[in-house]
Amino acid sequence: MYVDTKAHGTSSKALAAHRFRFGESRGFLGLLFMLPAATVLLLFLAYPLGLGVWLGMTDARVGRGGTYIGLENYEMLWTDSVFWLSVFNTLLYTVVASVFKFALGLWLALLLNHHLPFKAFLRAIVLLPWIVPTALSAIAFWWIYDPQFSVVSWALVRLGLIDKYINFLGDPAWARASVIMANIWRGIPFVAITLLAGLQTIPPSLYEAAVIDGATPWQRFRFVTFPMLTPIIAVVMTFSVLFTFTDFQLIYVLTRGGPLNATHLMATLSFQRAIPGGNLGEGAAIAVSMIPFLLAAILFSYFGLQRRRWQQGGGD
């Protein structure tokens, strides 16, 4: 190995000193290097997280610090039918959107994993829905869902499938379906590209072995692709569930929670109560109520990661 002349000049004593420095000052250096990130994260992430829990137990309003009122906000929410509706909506939104995102995303990943012309270009444009600002693509959906000038309704009428325009965002059931569809549209690329990355780490020899053993394409997917992908699926779906559950932008742009609160998610309800409504305490309480669900998702991810170590033949 190449050694600099300067190093030749240093005595063994100096080298030992280096080693000493190497071993001993790591704690201090580590602290020093961690300092910028730790400052920002403690000040603007950990502290607000605690503050949020505290605000949930106060009657704070915008521009006025609140006093401690115990669990009153939560008691109020417990009997608040709009809050429970938002919990239901959030769960429905998350479960339906995640299932479709996973199924369609996996399908798209498998399609993109074939030998295709313009492969790089295809991957690039498939990612588009995910990288453009959600608020802005939501505007395009808003226009597509317009009650009078919806191009979807127009096309369906022209094809003779329906006889009058669909009130996409005005009818509660349609509104729910519409926001879920927009969310799926936005989420597919992330799932697909990440799973595609996972697919490419599967050694081809496994498929060759399976073919030699006479496996059908379905068996190849079921017994080679799927088990090899599970760890990545666990991680991707945790992220997907987490971000769908706490979604805000899409609903805010498309429906603002309407019609009749049919599309209010916990995040949009908490925003509405806290910022335009001015009731910071109540908004914070709604936001805090999301935490148990998020913890469940994180635990799921944790066990997903555990399984991954076991699959790679590591300890336990």
Binding site: Y47, L49, A60, A287, A297, S301
Partner: peptide, 21 residues
């Protein structure tokens, strides 16, 4: 740090708003 990434802005914006004020 990994867990910090999982904390969504929808939970933080209210306390952050009061800090920003």
């Amino acid at each position: 740090i990994f867990l910090a990434y999982l904390v969504p802005p929808s939970i933080l914006f209210i306390p952050l708003a009061s800090m920003v004020f």
